[in-house]
Design a binder for these strands. Structure first.
Lengths: 347, 347
DNA sequence: CCCGCACCAGAGAGCGCTCTCTGTGTGCTC
DNA sequence: GAGCACACAGAGAGCGCTCTCTGGTGCGGG
């Protein structure tokens, strides 16, 4: 530590001394407590300015038993969402950054700070528990990209405040935010039918992920409503390459003229695969994506896609946790967001 | 807090009581200090297991004056890197996630945790300073996407340990990691020339960003070496759309047959713009990108691009900070990584 | 005029931990 | 067998803060 200028950083005590009041009064002023005489407030603020006082968070946290910190856990196997960019892959998906941005918009006004943690191994999972047990964080915001993730269960068992992004894969007494995936699938189906597609297919995500399953179900239900009983499907892994592969089999086996891909990455892959076969999008085959991510504007034609308001969802997720921390004995609640179709060129 | 199961979380004292030793001994065992008799170690570990003891980080931090936490600051104006996805845009670029992943790979083994902070306003910048002043973080890892960012200066002035991603725009006594941008520009030039391009252009990033400037300089120098004195340029903002726009003017004004775009997003835009004009990539016009990001595989042809090892760079950045924290009186150092050309379809 | 009450500043304990310092027991040397 | 050094456990202070509790002051009412 560079102790050149300041041999020791100033404490409450120092401020009290300079202001000629007691530590308690300084504390009251610093924390904006009511019932302090104006002249004392002034003297203290003056002393604070003069000493450059900054309250020590560890000391405060020790007595208040609050860290004003939440743990943001990204829990997924390394290969589930993104490409071969090494460990920490999950983070390379812009999805993650958007979630982070949304979280921060709720956290910042409350002066709560997010600390990032990856949890793919068992060891890492137990570290998550320890971290909040040791009082380093007040709660957990969990973004799980993994099917059968034991972490939600572990956290509720431990009685720790947690909010999930996406519905957990089996019912648990905890809060989460999600998009109405069924409705999203229906939106895509309606669009494809409206365009006059006669033979539609779907590129799904990994079906052990509830959201991916729901999008499929919603899509199929809507197609059934339109009188189409059978919808061929091919599963992908949410990556561009998997979209290319899935689309290729769909095209080869079923000569589809309309496809719903369960996320934008795979939709981009689907467009690429179609074009490679000499097909024109959207005339020969229409493609609808899901997410409205940055990828939607990276392809031609640009992607018609089902938008999920990730930033807002993440913001709400943080808000739910904060609320839970303020009022501990709350029942868990779910916030479900309605998706919207964004019409661009591909369908 | 759900005090159902545990009325109070167990402390060192409790463990000491159970183990029948002193607090000091427990502390020694917990921290793996040498010189503790085997039977005591055993008794303590046993007691820890039985009580479910987890050390309180605030208390520890209060006395050690170490938080085992570093601040990861993303400092940039909201609009500099990514698209119109609202506030927190900077994070939507996969670039950020890759950096985060790289950082964590160095931080995790040392059990240091990253807390995330955005700094675009003055208020937020001063919060960064406060945060480490109040002992909440031991140092700062700064990813600045902004030209003329005052934060590096502020941090060095305050004498706080900081490491930058990318060379600061004016010389400062601090450590940073960067890629050899000049060499990267040269790699792109060599490739274009090698392909037989006779009229090359460059889509630059914002030229007040040192890295963008360096890529331009490196590219021009190499072209000069190949006997080409003049290289037309058009500036973009690192976004896909800006790449489309810049490429369009280059194509219209200079009929280029080879282009170097200063990042992959803009390179994708360049390909799109070329194809919109009925040109074939790479035959009519070759395109080289920079980064080797996820976008490189989202277009057809796939992107030939100058790879910068973002994860490794970020990992090194964290390592530099950790080192600086261990040995405070170190001179700042720079770690420059060599870029490499990744050959794919576009050039 | 004196008592009581409201209001607000100060004193002091203590949050859970680390770390220095002291004390004790052991094994060694002479 | 006495003295000494060494190894290791325990006692205790104190990190910077919050918060309860106490006590002093000034006012109004009886």
């Amino acid at each position: 530590m560079p102790d050149d200028a300041s041999p020791r950083v100033s404490t409450l005590e120092d401020v009290a001394l300079v202001a000629g009041v007691s530590r308690a009064s300084v504390s009251r002023v610093v924390n904006g407590k009511a019932g302090v005489a104006a002249h004392i407030v002034e003297a203290v603020n003056d002393a604070i300015a003069r000493t450059g006082y900054v309250p020590n968070r560890a000391a405060r946290s020790l007595v208040t038993r609050r860290s004003d910190t939440v743990l943001v856990v990204v829990s997924g196997s390394d290969t589930s969402r993104a490409g071969p960019w090494g460990p920490g892959d999950v983070l390379a998906d812009p999805f993650f950054g958007r979630v982070a941005g949304g979280l921060m918009s709720s956290l910042r006004p409350r002066d709560v700070h997010p600390v990032l943690m990856l949890a793919v191994t068992d060891d890492e999972r137990s570290r998550v528990l320890s971290y909040v047990r040791e009082g380093s964080a007040d709660g957990v915001l969990l973004v799980s990209a993994q099917a059968g993730d034991p972490l939600p269960q572990m956290l509720t068992d431990a009685g720790l405040p947690v909010v999930l992004f996406s519905r957990p894969d089996h019912p648990l007494p905890l809060s989460y935010v999600d998009v109405n995936n069924r409705a999203g699938g229906a939106l895509a189906a309606d669009r494809l039918v409206e365009r006059g597609c006669r033979s539609v297919g779907i590129v799904t995500g990994p079906l052990d992920i509830p959201g991916a399953e729901d999008r499929l179900v919603g899509f199929r239900e809507a197609m059934a409503r339109h009188g189409v009983a059978y919808v061929p499907s091919a599963a992908g892994t949410f990556s561009v390459e998997s979209g290319v592969a899935a689309m290729s089999t769909l095209l080869a086996d079923h000569r589809v003229d309309g496809v719903f891909a369960s996320n934008d990455n795979m939709a981009v892959g689907a467009i690429l695969a179609a074009q490679e076969r000499g097909l024109t999008v959207p005339d020969d085959v229409a493609v609808v994506g899901f997410d409205d991510s940055t990828a939607a504007l990276m392809c031609r034609p640009t992607l018609t896609t089902v938008r999920q308001p990730i930033e807002e969802m993440a913001a709400e997720m943080a808000r739910l946790l904060l609320e839970r921390l303020d009022v501990p004995d709350q029942r868990p609640s779910a916030a479900i967001f309605e998706p919207a179709l964004v019409e661009r060129g591909s369908a």
